[in-house]
Design a protein around this nucleic acid. Sequence first.
DNA 1: CCATCATAGTGAGTATGCTCAGCTTCCATG
DNA 2: CATGGAAGCTGAGCATACTCACTATGATGG
Lengths: 163, 163
Amino acid sequence: MAEDPAARQRFGSSDALVDELFVTTQRLRAFVDGRLREHGASVARLRTLRVLALAGEPLRMRDLAEYVGNAPRTTTTIVDSLERDGLVERVRHPSDRRAFLLTLTEEGARCHREAEELDRAALAAATGALSGAEREQLRALLGRIRAAVDVDAGGAGGADEDD
Amino acid sequence: MAEDPAARQRFGSSDALVDELFVTTQRLRAFVDGRLREHGASVARLRTLRVLALAGEPLRMRDLAEYVGNAPRTTTTIVDSLERDGLVERVRHPSDRRAFLLTLTEEGARCHREAEELDRAALAAATGALSGAEREQLRALLGRIRAAVDVDAGGAGGADEDD
DNA sequence: CCATCATAGTGAGTATGCTCAGCTTCCATG
DNA sequence: CATGGAAGCTGAGCATACTCACTATGATGG
């Protein structure tokens, strides 16, 4: 797991920057996940719980998927696990029998609150060393990368440029 | 898949920076993967092929895993798929019957060369808009995050600090 | 020589992500 | 009302990552 820096120098790609992005994200995620798992949460589960908690009203699967930013099928899997653990409930939509309405259970809301606290603590540990200006720098750089990828993948006709 | 920015503003965590890092990485990876898959490669496979190609000598599974930066079990899975596709070969170590020695086949070497070209092109598209100074900025910021995570996860006694 | 511990690799199982196919249901149009 | 296409969700299957447990082998000490 340590990924010896010397090894990376020997074997890294010519543009190690992207590799660094991948590796950093993977480790950060593992770090946060580790903290959250002690309380039955995880990054993916928390993202889903968060959207449900902040929406304030029951959501359809597809809306949940869109807000979280995952493919619908991925949301099905995550909701399956959350429902299995009693954190969310699927109820048939009263007027559209294709759809479900998803709500947090009480335990789901409790789990969400606890997970948010753990998440904040973990993120503070991971990025707390960065100053406000540095955070803005990082945010801007990530935005530039996203824009480049979106343009190049989604068609050069001017994709969504959120900044 | 679009993850509406307005939705993120409504539902994002209090520290959207880390979410941005996750989302950016996921999209960048999907972007590069898409390019590579047209030629039988992928990010994970290319990383493995790259190490084998640059090592210049047969590698044990555990060394390969360490150089690539994955858990040994993950390397087993990836090597399984590469071997299935005829890109690498497992040969029993002559003096340690527990171990395998992994080598690229000719097709593996060819696949690696092609994938590297696609990779370079994709990375140029994704990060080409960044100037040299910005790349250094990003690299430094990622390094700071990794250092914070490593210290906080690996024990505060001074983990490996690669910079 | 053999008991014991360590190492190498993988099987089993899980989590998170995806696509494609398929079913059910809705809706618009004739 | 019927019909065809669109929409909502999930089954099937894959890729990438992990941990834990296990087998087989190596190495070491009595």
